[in-house]
Design a protein around this nucleic acid. Structure first.
Lengths: 233, 233
DNA sequence: GCAAAAGTGTTTGGATTACACCCATGC
DNA sequence: GCATGGGTGTAATCCAAACACTTTTGC
């Protein structure tokens, strides 16, 4: 006799999906790449891109596949978010979903069509419409996680263009944390990151152009290792 | 024709489980409640208590059920940890597992037998044996998460007895963060928690007995709400 | 010259650290 | 009395916030 109240095979009747929240930064706002669903259920609803996971596919691989299908990008770091598994969350059966998120540079690629998406579009986090399934919850709790990571890991550079001004960096944090920061103090705070100054300046501004910088990941990792450095915004 | 390379029903062939890391604190050490498996696979191996999730069961409910079966405890807060889903992690099929963790007071209950456990035992985190499946990974990454939560949320009181001395509290942190702290400075740091002093003292110690305190959750939540207080160790 | 933003230095007050000292209890 | 840890005050130090000021560019 089985230990369970149901047959063991009745457990193998669920599917799982990976939903991939893709964040970008544009016009001073953090945005998410949403798709409009091309099929039932929730046809025509806006949703976080996601897909069922193949029986032999690892979870982060599925998340990367979704990102690749939509953007053509590869080798982007995927961060695991929460897992959502309420029995009622999917109308067609028990489907639990593992949320991942990725940070990308909006200008680095073009949105591609995808098998499950009528269209895809960047949407400012202030203007998110009603989403399919429990995707509103997934998006907001994943954004909370992103903000937390922004505090303790220098992942802001995954959102900014490769060359950026210090003010652009500051504005990203001001947007995410919904605060205003002092310019001088902000620059003191990021001193230990040793951002690489470039021999290049901002163009087409009608004031003194700011210097451009880039982030040196390997030097950052080195100071974590060697000096036990802990980034903190 | 299906959009997928396999039949849609072939996705509904996986199961998922919840593994529940139960942490306790005893003799100055953080311990995990492990079970010895009574069935294949990994029969006789030590493992994190876990179980398949019933088709109509919500994930936190499954985690609570596991805790209840083993300890008789109910109404314990469950914290979601990471999800592990490598295709090879379970020898009998695709089983992904969502890890949860709970913090409990070791003295508050007695370990019960359980359908899937030969025996259960508290094991110090310094003495964890080889575990079944990928449970070593699950345990260590969940402990990292616990340490992180200990820094930003006053969940230490879920591990300590209801009445505790300030030194016991300090020792818990010293163990978790593997540091030594200054007594006077530690007490200044926890001032804003407004721990309730009791008219009671330590007993059976061969020195001046310390005052006992308890934690007032509702007052803590009030100062979070009213004064935007953020706990930080 | 003026507007606008880049970029930097100084002061100040609050928090953290190090450390010293007294207190209460058991034996 | 003394050993042991309980309990608290203070000075030194560091750090972050506030703010002022100079510089460079476009028009």
């Amino acid at each position: 006799m089985s230990l369970y109240k149901i047959e063991i095979n009745d457990f193998f009747t669920s599917a799982f999906s990976v939903d991939c929240v893709i964040f970008g930064y544009e016009d001073g706002e953090i945005k998410a790449l949403l798709i409009q669903r091309g099929m039932e259920p929730f046809k025509h609803f806006w949703a976080i891109p996601g897909d069922l996971v193949y029986p032999n596919e690892d979870l982060p691989d599925a998340a990367s596949r979704i990102l690749h299908e939509l953007t053509g990008l590869s080798d982007v770091e995927m961060h695991q978010s929460h897992t959502f598994g309420s029995p009622e969350r999917h109308p067609q059966g028990r489907v639990i979903t593992i949320a991942y998120f990725a940070l990308i540079r909006i200008t680095d690629f073009e949105i591609k069509a995808s098998s499950w998406a009528e269209k895809a579009q960047w949407v400012s986090l202030n203007e998110i419409p009603a989403l399919a399934f429990d995707h509103s919850t997934i998006l907001s709790s994943t954004y909370e996680l992103l903000k937390q990571k922004l505090t303790y890991e220098p992942i802001c550079f995954e959102l900014l263009p490769e060359r950026f001004t210090l003010n652009e960096l500051q504005q990203l944090y001001e947007y995410a944390f919904n605060t205003i920061m002092d310019k001088a103090n902000f620059r003191k705070k990021i001193k230990p990151l040793h951002l690489t100054p470039l021999n290049e300046r901002q163009k087409n501004v009608k004031h003194r152009p700011a210097k451009l910088f880039k982030f040196d990941q390997s030097e950052y990792l080195k100071s974590v290792q060697d000096d036990n450095y802990q980034f903190k915004m």
